[in-house]
Nucleic acid binder design. Structure first.
Lengths: 178, 178
DNA sequence: GGTGATTATATCGCCGCGATACATCGATCG
DNA sequence: CGATCGATGTATCGCGGCGATATAATCACC
């Protein structure tokens, strides 16, 4: 997931860690954390896997302040790996904390995969919605006021998300028909 | 967090692992995962910390089918610890993945702490909302269609959550005035 | 008497996070 | 001029949670 995001950003241009983190934060900060505690280890993992390489200290023109930063760059294997991940539409693409990341790279995702991811996400949210609905309408042991509030709010927001996903899916399909 | 939830449930009645997981899933399954991979290690952690104890194999009346289950029970220290956690209103009580758990035990949370948690949560969601709003209205580099959709949806749902929190807070305050 | 769902405990490795450490740079202010 | 502060930048540590998996007994059903 982090892997996917990093490969995706490095696919645009070589970058160093701090910048990757900033771009990520700017792009998806409201949805995911992306702390340094994951960033650098992931970078090293990718490096060990041969998906990225560290470029030389990279003297940019003049102004040799800015020191000691390591610029990473995708290898051919890295590009291939990213293409693979882009073509994937499995459950891990639509779960709560990776769906946003995948959406952020949707314009580079194949059209059919886009639809399958959106549909997977919809099914996933619908299941949650049904769970909440069932819990709320269940007779028998009545539930705590606060828990009920939580479930009511959850139900409403899942309903909205489903509607939103329907719009996105409809848009994708209409585009496909053209 | 898991710790808080387990202590809370065991505060109601002694239980074994499987049952704890079921109760948790039933109570908050739509919001959190609660897998066994956390459950049993947490249980052992609590046990080592002396907050819970394992009761004897617990022969229930007859029908000695039902094998090998370990029933856990709060110790006095465990009860004390739970009370401490209930009285806490720090940042970790209102972050995305513990707020729901805290709400689920709200009826046993002191009234003033309830309000402070709700206000903390509101501030947190408001910050996210402002981030999204700023990102959406920012001139300069226009953003990707899908990312914009994501942010629009995020903005709408944070706005709704803030409104919902306002209602909860208002309700708490009116109750306090009685 | 077999087959599969449910009850039940438990571990493994991975991943992401918060906290923290360290070091340098530019700007602001007294 | 020196101090201090907030970015910039790389990096690690331990912890907590998760998914996958193993194991095993019981129950309901055919």
């Amino acid at each position: 997931m982090f892997e996917f995001a990093l490969l995706g950003l490095l696919h645009e241009a070589p970058m160093h860690g701090y910048e990757l983190r900033k771009r990520l934060h700017d792009l998806l900060g409201a949805f995911r954390a992306f702390s340094y505690g994951s960033l650098y280890p992931t970078l090293r993992r990718l490096q060990r896997a041969g998906l990225i390489v560290e470029e030389g200290p990279e003297e940019s023109a003049l102004s040799w302040g800015r020191r000691a930063r390591k610029v990473y760059k995708l290898t051919p294997e890295g590009k291939e790996r990213f293409a693979e991940l882009l073509a994937d539409a499995g459950p891990q693409t639509w779960d709560d904390d990776s769906f946003g990341v995948h959406l952020a790279f949707f314009s580079r995702t194949p059209a059919d995969v886009r639809i399958r991811i959106l549909e997977g996400r919809r099914r996933c949210v619908e299941e949650r919605r049904e769970g909440l609905r069932e819990r709320l309408t269940r007779t028998g042991e009545q539930i705590d006021r606060y828990t009920r509030e939580l479930h009511r709010q959850g139900l409403e927001s899942t309903e909205r998300e489903v509607r939103w996903l329907n719009e996105l899916i409809a848009h994708e399909q209409s585009e496909q028909d053209e």
